[in-house]
Structure formats: structure tokens, C-alpha cells
Amino acid sequence: MSEPTQLPTQHRLTDWGVIRAQGTDAASFLHGQLTQDFAGLDRDHARLAGFCTAKGRLLATMVGWKQGDDDLLLALPAETLPATLKRLSMFVMRAKCKLTDASAEFAVYGLLGVPAAEAWTLVRDGDAVQIALPAAPGLGRALRVQAADAPAPAGAAITPEDWAGAEAQAGIAWVRGATVEAFVPQMINFEVLGGVSFKKGCYPGQEIVARSQYRGTLKRRLQVFESDGAATVGQEIFSSADPEQPAGVVAGSGTRDGRTVIAAEIKLAALDGPSLHLGSATGAALQPRALPYEIPPQE
């Protein structure tokens, strides 16, 4: 007799919301505002994308997909949703695109232990969608978005800390309230994870993002660490070699197997120093861990 299949675990992301972009110009409008290609988006994939200032700093990060031909949805952390919706709406002008906060219509879940799949592939289950997310080896992850009144997905519930720990372990971080305008996309490995198209046309901040990519001047990257100390998004990180100046900032944090897992944007030069610490040069020590993906060398 075969062993029963183990169900994935799930966590309802009550701290996430959904923006709806509806109209015949919805895809082209988002294409001109976000870091990813929405003009060529099909129904079997989602897009990781960022919304930048003119200086290339990320105001928000999100996952977008087609709910219908002229109906696109963007899922993102709720703390950045109101400002993102307001700022995007400023640029609609004559485009046939209506932007609304659709958060009340949907429930967003994070799933752990699902079968491995290429990140950003999308499977439809009636009106629900399940989107494969970047993951650490052996820990398949997905984002499931379904009607707010639909039953929860099968599987035991996990804590917010466990979900956030799996996110950090996967080497991905989302812009939160504490990190708005803190990063250009490459500082959090966004282009490696599929969040930037360098073949599409202009969008706010495009020149800065492209310059960071092609001039080989990037001096900061997202790295994964473990620690015995608790960490919060936006918390500064210090090197014992330079205790007066922050060496980085916590971009995401949670727990895995009883330890704190941190995705931190860090000065690359600080990785060669004696030690890194949370909050101050005498704070909890950070132990570097391998990213689950490769960072291409700068040309």
C-alpha cells in the first residue's frame, strides 16, 4: 500500500491585498508603469514586478496576472497598497483602465510543501489561481488567490513567522512600509528572480535600473542569514569592522526550525568583514547562508 500523500501547509496572508486593473488598456498601462512586461503576459504565467520612483527606487513590489482578457490583478503587501493605488491612478489619464482596491473580494494564501514548479507559472482552479513562487530546495511554495468566501485550501495552518521564514530562505523580499524607496530592484535581487524586463520600453526609473544593470556599479545585494536574535523589517545591520555606519538593512525575516532567517540587503564589501550584527556592532550575530539561486557576475 502506498503512503498517503502529505498535504501542503498553508497560511492566509491577511497582510496582503489586491489591486484590480480593468479595461482595454489595462495591460498596456501596467506595462508602461511597472518593471515587467505586461503587454506580452499570457494566462499561464504571472509576473513579479516593481513600481519605482523616477530615481529607480522601489515604492512597491507585487505579483500580477490576467484574471480575464481585460482584467488584471496585482497582489502585494497591504501596507504599500493605498499609496501604490493612488500613485498609479495619477498616471491613468486617458487610458481605458480603471484601478480599484479589490482586496475585499479575494483571500490570499501562501502554500508550503507544494510540488516544485518553475517560478511564476500559474495554474487555474475555477476562479482561483495558484502561482509558483521562488523556493529553497525541497520546499515548494505557491501563492493562491481565491474568492474571499471560498473554503481555505487543504492543509494545516502555519504561523506568519514560519511563512516569512520560508520567504527569507527562498531569497525573496517584498517592499514593506519600512523599506519604501530603500532599494533599486537589483539591491534585492529582483532582476535575478524575474522581476525586471530589460527588453521592454520605458517605465518610471527605467534609466536608473538599466544603468545599475549594465555599468557594473552595484555594490549591494540581498543575502540570506540566520541568527539567534529576533529581527524586524527595516532594522539596520552593522559590521564589526565599521561599527559607526550601517552595512545593510533587514528586508524580510521569519523563523525556520527555531532560528531566525533573514533576507537582508547588504554591502557586498561587508561580507568579507569579520562579522555582521543586528541593530548595532554588538547586537545578535548573523551567520551567512547560501542563496538558493546564483547571482550573475557583474560585467
Rank of each mutant, 00 (worst) to 15 (best):
A164M: 10
G140M: 12
F190M: 04
G252K: 08
D69L: 06
L76D: 15
P137V: 09
K96A: 13
R215L: 05
G171H: 06
L48R: 09
V250W: 02
T260A: 09
P274L: 07
T61Y: 07
A117M: 08
D162E: 15
S103D: 05
L34R: 01
S103L: 05
G138N: 12
T61P: 03
V196G: 02
D125Y: 14
T179V: 08
G64K: 10
Q36T: 05
I131F: 07
L7R: 15
P153C: 14
G68T: 04
A116Q: 12
Q206Y: 04
T5N: 10
Y203C: 00
K200S: 09
L143D: 10
E244P: 06
A95V: 01
D125C: 09
H11A: 13
Q10H: 14
H45K: 06
A182K: 09
V196E: 00
A156Q: 14
A95P: 03
K267H: 08
G234Q: 07
A49D: 00
R220P: 00
A46Q: 02
S2F: 14
D162F: 06
Y293E: 02
L139F: 13
A241R: 01
Q245N: 15
L133M: 15
L122N: 09
D44L: 03
A150T: 11
G40W: 07
I131R: 01
E79V: 14
V129I: 15
D71S: 03
A154G: 14
G155A: 13
T255W: 01
W163F: 15
L30I: 00
E244H: 12
A231I: 07
T24K: 14
V92M: 07
K200Q: 08
F238W: 05
K86F: 09
H45T: 12
E79H: 14
V192E: 05
A269Q: 11
V250G: 06
Q235K: 01
G177Y: 12
L291M: 04
T53N: 08
V108G: 00
G248T: 09
A285T: 10
G138H: 14
Q169Y: 11
G194K: 02
A49H: 02
L291K: 01
P4D: 12
F183I: 10
P292D: 12
W163I: 07
G110L: 07
A166P: 02
R47Y: 04
K219A: 03
D70A: 04
A136Q: 06
M1F: 11
G258P: 06
E167H: 01
L291Y: 02
F51W: 06
A116R: 09
D272I: 03
G283P: 03
P204H: 00
L88V: 13
Q206M: 03
A107C: 02
P82A: 10
A107Y: 00
L7N: 14
Y109I: 11
L59G: 07
A251M: 08
A75D: 03
V209H: 01
L48H: 10
A281N: 10
L99K: 00
C52I: 02
F190D: 03
G113T: 13
C52P: 00
R87P: 03
D228L: 03
G177I: 11
L193W: 04
W120Y: 13
K200D: 00
G56H: 08
D71W: 04
T260F: 13
K200V: 04
A285H: 01
A156I: 12
T14Q: 10
S280T: 05
I19C: 00
I295E: 03
Q235E: 14
A290S: 06
A147F: 09
A119L: 04
M1T: 08
T24Q: 15
A264T: 13
D162W: 10
V108M: 05
V250N: 05
L291C: 04
